[in-house]
């Protein structure tokens, strides 16, 4: 059986911003929904220099979920010279789905969960595009 190519999802997982909490949930949902396609990268462990957190993602295609304008995933991964395949800016997903206002940073609520689902859809689209490009 050929091994499925897996994509690494790295959410910012920040605690200060509501959209960061949504991104965290989206990453979990993507991995739970499709464990053959997605694995999770652990940003704080990478930032802390935990060796297997880095080695687990090395050489894999990485998709980041960015929670705010500070773009912490990009800054941290750049420091370790880890390339990013694609980024989803959660504020843009929210702009496209204005009715899905999350409740709070500590409890994103049902609308936050629905917004997280929209992010999962974006992740799946990125994978489809990647596969199509590879076939061309």
């Amino acid at each position: 059986m050929p091994e499925h190519k897996k994509f690494v999802v790295i959410a910012c997982t920040g605690m200060g911003k509501i959209l960061a909490s949504v991104g965290r949930v989206a990453a979990f949902l993507a991995q739970e929904r499709d464990p053959n396609k997605f694995i999770l990268g652990n940003l704080p462990a990478i930032a802390a220099g935990i060796e297997n957190a880095k080695s687990e993602i090395e050489g894999k295609d990485i998709i980041t979920l960015t929670g705010c304008k500070e773009k912490c995933p990009e800054k941290i991964l750049r420091r370790f010279s880890i390339p990013i395949l694609a980024d989803i800016m959660i504020s843009e997903v929210y702009r496209e789905n204005k009715t899905l206002k999350p409740k709070s940073r500590s409890d994103i609520g049902n609308t936050g969960l629905q917004l997280a689902e929209k992010i999962v859809e974006k992740l799946q689209k990125i994978i489809i595009i990647q596969k199509e490009e590879k076939c061309d």
Binding site: C12, T13, G14, M15, G16, P44, A48, P73, K75
Partner: peptide, 12 residues
């Protein structure tokens, strides 16, 4: 005050 860990790591 919250010190957000990824933000600290990213020098915010």
């Amino acid at each position: 005050v919250l010190i957000c860990l990824p933000a600290l790591a990213a020098d915010v």
